[in-house]
């Protein structure tokens, strides 16, 4: 195990975050704060409580998930795509590091960044609403596993992408709609029966629901199903990445 290499990649990626602090931290925090102000304070005050939770507080887990998912995906995708684009990937490929170590470095850094971001957003949220966390362990469990899983997904996208536009497509056209339609801002019980059934096919629902349960013990689906779902996503991403490294897909010619 080349621990120093993992650390080198990890530090390098984290240094990139500090260099681009505005882009990687300030802008997601700002946009989340805007959501709080608009949905939480302005519109939320006109809305009734959902299962005994004020709408502003109900929003928090969904907003954290929104940032966590989009930032994990785009951080990790960019982190691996950029060296591919500039050609500096040659060094990582020629170094005595295993695929697993490369992955630990890049995905570890991307997940760390989005966790830092999630923490900042949670802290920001306490300025607007009264937060209570019923199950801190499960809250962290969902937070960490979601960050890792979607950083893995981002890594896959970064390897697959051929251009900067493709790098944007998945977060923009897939992740964002799934998050918006996955019950981040509402309980699916508010939807007509048909759309409730459709929503059950949205993987993000399970993450948001489980995460919200860890705060308020209210959920759209059973927390056990949520836990299972995140483990399934994790396994799927790991399998794809295992295949990528085994075949050298888009990494080695």
């Amino acid at each position: 195990m080349n621990g120093r290499a993992i650390l080198a990649i990890y530090r390098y990626e984290m240094a990139r975050m500090w260099r681009t602090i505005g882009q990687s931290v300030v802008s997601p925090v700002l946009s989340t704060s805007l959501y709080f102000i608009v949905f939480g304070a302005a519109i939320g005050s006109q809305m009734q409580e959902i299962d005994g939770v004020s709408y502003g507080a109900f929003l928090v887990p969904g907003l954290v998930m929104l940032s966590l998912l989009t930032q994990s995906v785009s951080n990790a995708a960019f982190g691996i795509y950029f060296p591919k684009f500039t050609g500096t990937i040659y060094e990582v490929l020629s170094a005595p590091v295993s695929a697993f170590e490369i992955l630990c470095g890049y995905v570890g850094a991307a997940a760390t960044k989005s966790l830092i971001l999630g923490a900042i957003i949670l802290a920001t949220a306490t300025l607007f609403v009264d937060l209570q966390i019923a199950h801190p362990f499960w809250m962290l469990f969902f937070l960490v596993l979601t960050a890792v899983t979607f950083s893995l997904l981002g890594f896959i996208i970064g390897i697959w992408a051929d251009g900067f536009d493709q790098l944007q497509i998945v977060p923009l056209l897939v992740i964002t709609p799934l998050v918006f339609l996955g019950g981040s801002f509402y309980s699916i019980s508010m939807l007509p029966d048909f759309w409730q059934t459709v929503t059950l096919f949205n993987p993000v629902l399970y993450l948001v629901s489980g995460f919200r349960w860890s705060f308020y013990e209210i959920s759209d689906v059973s927390p056990m199903i949520s836990i299972l779902a995140i483990l399934v996503f994790l396994t799927v991403c790991c399998t794809i990445i295992w295949w990528i490294f085994k075949t050298g897909y888009r990494l080695k010619s």
Partner: peptide, 22 residues
């Protein structure tokens, strides 16, 4: 093929770490 934004010192130190040397 170099990283545009890195400093010379940090990119060279990175290489050493990547190859597993203290």
């Amino acid at each position: 093929t170099t990283d545009a934004f890195e400093s010379v010192w940090s990119t060279v130190s990175f290489s050493r770490g990547l190859f597993g040397k203290p």
